[in-house]
């Protein structure tokens, strides 16, 4: 998922930076005092998730957890993912500093999408609804990121369908695992802290 330094052209990098800057500023605005510790915990989760690689499938891929982060945080997911990716780039040399904008957008935008798609189901109406929406949330996060990465790579001259297929297939096991993780997280949070899911987090 992390696009390395020197792969993308300048216009793509600049577009990524602009979109990410917009997302982060909106995220910072929506992040109120009570939300900050939650954002920090999920940032930490995102930061270490990239170290867990999934050894199933044709290529090696790792956990991203962007669906879960988006679902719980909403727009502040942009700030969380930007911080997580910066630290990964600086400490692990994953991705690169110049591609930080593009990478953040590629992972944070699907997070926001799953936030708006699945938030409604997170009231305690129905257990099955909750589980399936949690699972889909994890899937959508990875799928969206895979498609956005493919779209970013199109500008380097790779054909969209070929790359998209490659990336999506490589991430199929991750999608399923993230779906399970997100569903489990949503169900257990629903038990112990339902207000985290409905948005009005009070600590």
């Amino acid at each position: 998922m992390h696009i390395s330094e020197g792969v993308l052209s300048a216009p793509v990098l600049v577009t990524g930076v602009i979109l990410t800057a917009a997302g982060v500023s909106l995220g910072l605005k929506k992040m109120d005092y009570e939300k900050i510790p939650e954002v920090a915990v999920l940032t930490s989760a995102f930061f270490v998730a990239s170290l867990i690689h999934v050894p199933i499938g044709p290529s090696s891929a790792h956990l991203v957890l962007n669906g879960l982060i988006g679902l719980l945080l909403g727009w502040p997911a942009f700030s969380a993912i930007l911080v997580g990716l910066s630290l990964q780039a600086l400490l692990f040399q994953f991705g690169g500093i110049t591609s930080l904008g593009v990478n953040t957008f590629n992972m944070a935008f699907p997070a926001i999408v799953s936030f708006y798609l699945f938030r409604i189901f997170n009231r305690r109406y129905n257990r099955y609804l909750l589980v399936s929406s949690g699972f889909l949330c994890g899937v959508v996060g990875i799928l969206g990121s895979a498609l956005l990465v493919a779209m970013s790579l199109v500008t380097t001259g790779e054909a969209f369908l070929t790359v998209a297929k490659l990336i999506v297939i490589a991430h199929l096991p991750v999608m399923i695992i993230e779906g399970v993780i997100t569903a489990t997280a949503v169900v257990s949070l629903n038990k112990v802290r339902p207000e985290l899911l409905t948005g009005k987090a009070k600590i």
Partner: peptide, 11 residues
């Protein structure tokens, strides 16, 4: 996660 990650490394 930290304990697991010492053996499994990423991308």
């Amino acid at each position: 996660v930290l304990l697991v990650s010492s053996t499994a490394l990423a991308h």
